[in-house]
Design a binder for these strands. Structure first.
Lengths: 243, 243
DNA sequence: AGCGATTAGAGAGCACTGCTCTTGACGCGG
DNA sequence: CCGCGTCAAGAGCAGTGCTCTCTAATCGCT
């Protein structure tokens, strides 16, 4: 509760941080499967069993890293969005896209942990759901803002979503409040398209094929913006400013 | 070379098949990280070291599974495409989408192996590239066929791709022959959008959010078809026939 | 200040993994 | 029919996650 707890608790918090830091570094170099509690203990000059005082199991350490990852990505996305003019909705969308891609390329293994194959017997505990949607919340706000401002014009020939999707749309509106069903489905397309693109690049599907990945990404996200119904870049120079 | 090789070679081929079969089953239940050579040997009544006569390392076994996976998915996609009328390009695209989704949901761990996080220290050897693009080849043929038939009408407001992408488009045209650059980029959007959608579903990103996943998928793939420039379903009953 | 309770680390140990090496047996082709 | 090559077996190495017990340090409280 109060600011400076007992000395034990402070050193404990510090050790937890040191463990996760080393773990994150191991993750970056070896990948999730190479994460070894014993190696962490070795690097800290501890004995392996001592780690279990701080993380009851390897999966718990992994969960901590996942939560940290979601928060790091969410924070990057929040910052990217915050740096844009509030009414430049296309710019905000593109900024979010670039932030996701940049973070994913900088932390491929962490990205894999969040958006790649779920780890073996591991089921994400409930604590992860809140951080997991930080980026999505930002995205939802952009879409909702654009819609409220009347700047979300549906593309000419967009088929109406089937009626059954109405209930799902109701749930999705928790992050994209106040938009009709067809905007919800188009928003999902753009969002999954973003992560499909990033995953292809990070996971190596573009190897030996696509070389100008940044340009392709930029162009495709612009196309997805158009599909979403976002207006053409109000001021192209505005977009190039943060490249 | 000739049909019935020596008895030794035949039993060897059979053992290799048995190993991969058990491995595939292990993969399905435990995931890639739970794949254990010793467990396979145990199940076969062998001693663990004997496995190494057939697969020099765990990664080699994994590679075999990956190649098999790509081939299985590619085959499913090929069959789905082959079952469609050749000039029903939208139907062929949707059939491919459904085939990918169906296979991925039926074999989530194998799908994760192919399109999820790359495994730890493992680098895909050259033997995987040919099977890896079987599905993409089918997709490319559909796009190329549709374009050649003049049934690929670009959506009204699609921005032209930047000039630098021309060289990449040249490479991509190996699987989508004879189409202009803007078709190439739109094809990539649709393709990554498909896998983004499937990955979100298979990897659990839709948990607690989307319940009518088949309907959402169907609708979104239709939207992507429209973005690609494919015509509206020539005959809706034709599409419903294979659900 | 000191005492009892709590917590941290050390170490041994279990069951498991991938992988290597040697040994002995078996089958196939010259 | 005999020797070469292949094969299973077993022991063993280094590593893993995790549990248990034991000791020592620290904390809260009287």
């Amino acid at each position: 509760m109060n600011a400076s707890r007992t000395a034990r608790e402070r050193v404990r918090a510090e050790l937890i941080k040191e463990i996760t830091d080393i773990a994150r570094r191991q993750l970056a170099t070896e990948g999730a499967a190479g994460l070894s509690l014993r190696a962490i203990a070795r690097e800290m000059g501890m004995v392996s069993s001592a780690i279990y005082r701080y993380f009851p199991s390897r999966d718990d350490l992994l969960t901590a890293l996942i939560i940290d990852g979601y928060n790091a990505l969410g924070e990057a996305v929040e910052h990217a969005d915050a740096a844009c003019a509030r009414d430049d909705f296309t710019g905000r969308w593109l900024a979010v896209c670039r932030a996701v891609r940049k973070w994913a390329l900088a932390h491929p293994h962490e990205y894999a942990l969040l958006y790649g194959s779920p780890v073996p017997g591991y089921a994400a505990p409930q604590d992860t759901v809140a951080p997991a949607v930080r980026d999505t919340v930002v995205y939802g706000r952009i879409v909702a803002d654009a819609y409220r401002a009347g700047r979300l014009t549906p593309p000419p020939v967009s088929p109406p979503p089937p009626a059954v999707l109405a209930e799902d749309a109701e749930v999705v509106r928790a992050v994209i409040p106040g938009v009709p069903d067809d905007v919800v489905t188009r928003a999902i397309i753009a969002w999954t398209g973003l992560f499909g693109m990033v995953s292809f690049e990070v996971f190596g599907q573009f190897n030996n094929t696509i070389t100008h990945r940044a340009e392709l990404f930029e162009h495709n996200m612009t196309c997805l913006a158009r599909l979403l119904g976002l207006p053409e870049g109000v001021d192209p120079r505005e977009q190039n400013r943060r490249a």
